[in-house]
Design a binder for these strands. Sequence first.
DNA 1: ATCCTGTTGG
DNA 2: CCAACGGGAT
Length: 210
Amino acid sequence: MFGDLYNLLYVYYGNLEWWPSETDDETVIGTILTQNTSWKNVEKALKKMKENHVYTLDEIATTDQERLKELIKSSGFYNQKSRYLLTVSKEITEKYGNLPGMKNKDMKEIEGFIMGLDGVGNETMESIMLYALDYPVFVVDAYTLRFFKRFYGKEFSRKEIRNYAEEEFSEIDQLKNFHGMIVNLGKDFCKKTPVCKSCFLRNDCLYGKH
DNA sequence: ATCCTGTTGG
DNA sequence: CCAACGGGAT
């Protein structure tokens, strides 16, 4: 299904260092902070959190919300995101102790638990599963839905895309890179108002051909 | 002036 | 389905 597309993207983008972060805790924090927010602004917040030693789920769980708001201000939506960070950190540490305690468990159980966290929807859950916990999950975001609709000229549901991708790519690295390449494509060419003329997929994309 | 690796509550 | 959340970069 997506094999040919993967190769086309790979020729252009190659292996991306996707979801750069020093620790799995930072990855989880990043998935929440980057919701509808540019990564540049998230980096500022992560830097501040690190400098102030509010950088692990344990540290966040015992931090005052007002202080958290100041630290993550640059990533926007700080009122809700500070609340999400607190509840997510508390619930994870209370139930599993830490992120390693969530690895190598029944995938559906962990997925259900994460989806139940306030502030965590499909994309954030999938990102945590794949990038912080190493489960073979494909991340379906707004870029993916928009790009696939144009490229294949047909609307796919999140569920369909996840199923196809996870069926086809069993390797964690492939799932990571496929998502990473799609996000980059969405920022470089397949934007809200697409730049098809200079896009390397213009001859393969149903929308790019007209 | 517009957009950003979304999610929630109405 | 849709308004609301929000500072920062381009």
